[in-house]
């Protein structure tokens, strides 16, 4: 898929663990893992909003378009 999820990078920049983020945005670690691995087919605006708020970043910091 040409949409890359850079959640790992942002987590590393903020020095935050996946488990902590999952707790902050109220989703399961399994779902967060799906999102990080790029296996997710879609992301809700509410989830994106929660991630941006927790990591203090913009959606473009998390999602990136790379042509195949």
């Amino acid at each position: 898929m040409p949409i890359i999820v850079n959640l790992d990078v942002m987590l590393a920049k903020r020095k935050m663990k996946s488990k902590d983020l999952a707790e902050m945005i109220d989703i399961t670690t399994a779902n967060l893992s799906i999102l990080k691995s790029g296996k997710a087919r879609a992301i809700r605006f509410s989830t994106l909003e929660a991630i941006c708020k927790a990591l203090d970043c913009q959606p473009s910091d998390i999602l990136e378009y790379v042509e195949d």
Partner: peptide
């Protein structure tokens, strides 16, 4: 259903 399950 798969789409729904993989929507985070």
């Amino acid at each position: 259903k798969k789409d729904s399950d993989l929507t985070i």
